[in-house]
Write a protein that binds this DNA or RNA. Structure first.
Length: 256
DNA sequence: ATGGCTACGATCCGTAGA
């Protein structure tokens, strides 16, 4: 079973890339972020033709999340219960006995800004939500764009980034609090190449210089971690014409 | 040197991303 996450940075623009990638990689479940699309314009029929059911929560211009799956999606819920938010950043669904939560965590803009405070409050609400979901669903995955590079090895130039948004200590503590619930970072369950990143700035030829951050992750419950057989970042779509600035992350699981 | 792309929705620039 293959589960993937990809911040597509506009589903409308990236739909051709997504279609090709689904056909090539054949993931069973895909979490998408930054759809930047209203629900009325979600390409449900095109994805169905590609073999995927979809659950989505979108809005115009900003944010927007979706879960695609080859098998039926049940128990769909959107947002974080009890956390009032206009921004469409969370969607959850159950596929067979697997609970999948797709997240587009806030960017935070700059340390000390209003958006940074919102990011930290949002992470605290996410933690409480995940604690409740974990109690109900032993096989749980949280996949998405966390907008946090958890350790210095997830940052191309830790000195230049020191104290900045995405790596600041309060953000990293908020991210680690999710691991404190018993979740594991699937990528770090395995030997990985040095300098492995999932996002590269469009500017300054950052991708060519591999000047990136690893901010897209798949967190798995203990039950799921036992069954995880690999986790990789697929840089191929980032090399295409007009790419998303994020690469997909793919985790594989043995099914029983 | 604080820019540099890209997407969007509004117009031909401002906001946001990370």
């Amino acid at each position: 079973m293959k589960l993937a996450t990809w911040n597509v940075n506009s589903l409308k623009v990236r739909l051709p890339h997504l279609g090709d990638w689904l056909a090539q990689v054949q993931p069973d479940v895909v979490c998408l972020q930054e759809l930047k699309t209203e629900d009325a314009k979600f390409p449900r029929a095109e994805l169905q033709a590609a073999g995927y059911q979809s659950a989505f929560s979108g809005q115009k211009t900003y944010n927007g999340v979706a879960i695609l799956a080859r098998a039926p999606l049940a128990g769909v819920s959107t947002g974080i219960p009890g956390f009032a938010d206009e921004q469409k950043r969370v969607i959850a669904a159950t596929i067979s006995d697997l609970r999948v939560i797709c997240v587009y965590c806030p960017n935070g803009q700059a340390v000390g800004s209003e958006k940074y405070d919102y990011k930290l409050r949002w992470f605290a609400a996410l933690r409480d939500y995940l604690a409740a979901e974990l109690a109900r669903h032993p096989k749980l995955a949280v996949a998405g764009d966390f907008n946090v590079a958890p350790e210095d090895r997830d940052v191309h130039d830790p000195k230049a980034w020191e104290g900045q948004v995405h790596v600041s200590e309060p953000e990293r503590a908020a991210w680690r609090a999710l691991l404190g619930l018993g979740l594991k970072d699937a990528f770090r369950l395995f030997e990985q190449p040095e300098k492995a990143y999932s996002w590269w700035d469009y500017r300054m030829m950052a991708f060519r210089r591999n000047a990136g951050l690893r901010i897209d992750q798949i967190l798995v419950s203990a039950e799921l971690a036992k069954r995880c057989t690999g986790c990789t970042i697929d840089k191929a779509p980032r090399k295409l014409e007009r790419p998303s600035d994020h690469a997909p992350v793919v985790a594989e699981f043995s099914v029983d």
